[in-house]
Design a protein around this nucleic acid. Structure first.
Lengths: 341, 341
DNA sequence: CTTAAGTTTGCAATCGATTGTGGGATCACC
DNA sequence: GGTGATCCCACAATCGATTGCAAACTTAAG
């Protein structure tokens, strides 16, 4: 196998110095070389099948053209669209995303982070933020550009693109109230996550603003955004408050777990208990019953996060800490109905 | 922001030459340096927060420690587990996956491929193979290591890890036959894909081997593995052959499209028409009706593909072209039942 | 004490691109 | 023909690590 041809191979073939070849090949500096020469270089490159070596370029320019994307779990169907949005925007500017699945494991997250720093990514897009997250400090110490996506953090010194979770939960809760429900429970997400805490707060506020009772046993905090965790949370919730007629779940997976437990206990959804989810995950409309949920523009979250990071990477000078919030929408389906008489 | 410390910073602080520092830092060559010296270097590195520069290393060693992973669409729920399997195996050996979504677009695929070649990935794992795929030739010309995953190709000179699709479809089809069905249709996938063609062949063979009639209008080829495509294929199928009592879909998404159309036409599934899918995508058990389908060990496909590639990358010498096939399993759920009387 | 073998370390080239600097053409104009 | 000005291009340093080679030093054996 002949080794790949290099810049100086091209230069030699075109009969110029490699510096000239470099400038000719790079659109941004092409104007520095004579038109005819440039074409000769381009032709030589084409004939040799020259492929620039991004590694060598990266060493010299100390920019790798890569961005680290840290997500909790690719198998949670909510993240692929976010990743997709990020990639589409980055690819358009010649950047490549390096994906890292942390599996909600701090150990693993640290290792992956190190590996990305070693690879000299130009910036990070982080979807694993906790409300107070040591990794973010470390990133800041390294002087790395960071944009948070989907999950925010308590600190206000990081760019972030999130959905308006407060509004989303308010929409779902008010939908239930307007449908006639008065005893509504909440399956909350982990409270060390921004999404878990803000959604729980919004639930509480919404009930308050409608002057509805909210005894503490109407809220159960789940320890993960998973079906299993939603199921066990629902068991607790129903044991504590058997007279609930509706459950606002902080997430679709929790809602699915809730539906499982309702079925397990012989309670019909939505006839006896209504359930709402959050995210409008793919195929939520195909479930039995089709899930009433809050649609979040995941793709756009990713795309905007990508844009924010690109802006920081490509535009010189100081940057504002932008915090962008995108609007969710209530999607009414079959898992909600008026309460039983 | 102080610039990141380099190898020679570490060497200086430890009072040794950078060559020595390099050897001390690298476990594989550490035995070449005096124990005490090595510890001094390690300490210096720790104090300075030294992070090796993978770019510089890659330039020198001409190995990037990255692998290109080309998949058709991350949002198809079947691929995240594959990616996950790949990443887990690669990460364990210090490799990083560069993910590329082609969106089934050849143009886009070519661009992403170029970009990965530029980044000097050490190898490729390809899940977008078509039966006859120009990209694969090009990769071979570049002398790149390639392992196919999930989808094979007609050529036999590439390593591949696939499910035993032939067996999978046979299981689904025989399940229907044993349940009493005689007039069974097939929603086939794109025939330029290995999976599409082998599944269609297996369907035909299975019916033949049971001496069942199979008029050509009982098979409709869909032009993509998507719900929409499955829906329109099903319309054609039902128009051509209204007396079918069962449909073997080449894929879960096609099966979902089929269920949509059955509902749209007032046909009850499974009472009037049974449907089987393929892949056992996440949440297939939650659908209405729960989908009878063929479970494919996606995670393991990815993991094995990763192992195969790693073996080629790390073990010197010539390599066998291994073709690995993993067994699927029939998962019987609510979308299949005996045919109506 | 000499020689040989074995350890440990330093020197310097190298990977392949980018880029600041300076010099040689070419041309115009006085 | 001299003087700039303008354009192109070549030279060479540089990014940060790895590694073949040889020098220096230690130890052991004769």
């Amino acid at each position: 196998m002949p080794r790949a041809s290099t810049l100086s191979d091209v230069a030699q073939r075109a009969g110029v110095h490699q510096a000239t070849a470099s400038r000719a090949l790079n659109p941004a500096s092409r104007h520095l070389v004579n038109r005819a020469t440039a074409e000769r270089v381009l032709a030589a490159a084409r004939e040799l099948g020259y492929v620039p070596n991004a590694i060598a370029r990266g060493l010299r320019t100390s920019r790798s053209g890569t961005v680290g994307v840290i997500i909790p779990d690719l198998m949670n169907p909510l993240f692929p669209p976010i990743v997709r949005g990020i990639e589409d925007v980055l690819a358009h500017e010649g950047y490549t995303a390096l994906l890292a699945n942390t599996d909600n494991d701090e150990q693993r997250e640290r290792a992956l982070f190190e590996s990305l720093v070693t690879r000299r990514v130009d910036g990070f897009i982080v979807a694993t933020a906790r409300r107070n997250h040591p990794l973010l400090d470390e990133a800041a110490r390294h002087g790395l550009k960071v944009v948070l996506v989907y999950r925010g953090t308590d600190r206000t010194d990081f760019c972030a693109v999130t959905a308006d979770d407060r509004l989303g939960i308010a929409l779902a809760t008010e939908h239930l109230i307007q449908t006639g429900h008065r005893r509504i429970g909440h399956l909350a997400g982990p409270q060390d996550l921004y999404t878990g805490s803000i959604r729980a707060n919004s639930f509480t506020e919404t009930l308050r603003s409608h002057h509805l009772r909210l005894p503490p046993e109407h809220i159960v905090v789940c320890d993960a955004y998973s079906e299993a965790s939603g199921a066990s949370g629902t068991r607790t919730l129903l044991d504590q408050a058997p007279d609930l007629t509706a459950i606002v779940a902080a997430n679709d997976l929790l809602a699915l777990g809730a539906c499982d437990v309702l079925r397990e206990r012989g309670l019909r959804c939505p006839d006896q208990v209504s359930v709402t989810g959050f995210n409008d995950m793919p195929f939520a409309d195909k479930f039995d019953p089709p899930l009433t949920t809050v649609r979040v523009p995941h793709y756009d979250l990713g795309a905007e996060a990508g844009r924010l990071l690109l802006d920081q990477l490509t535009r010189p000078g100081p940057h504002l800490v932008k915090r962008l919030s995108l609007p969710p929408a209530l999607i009414t389906r079959g898992s909600t109905a008026p309460p039983p008489q």
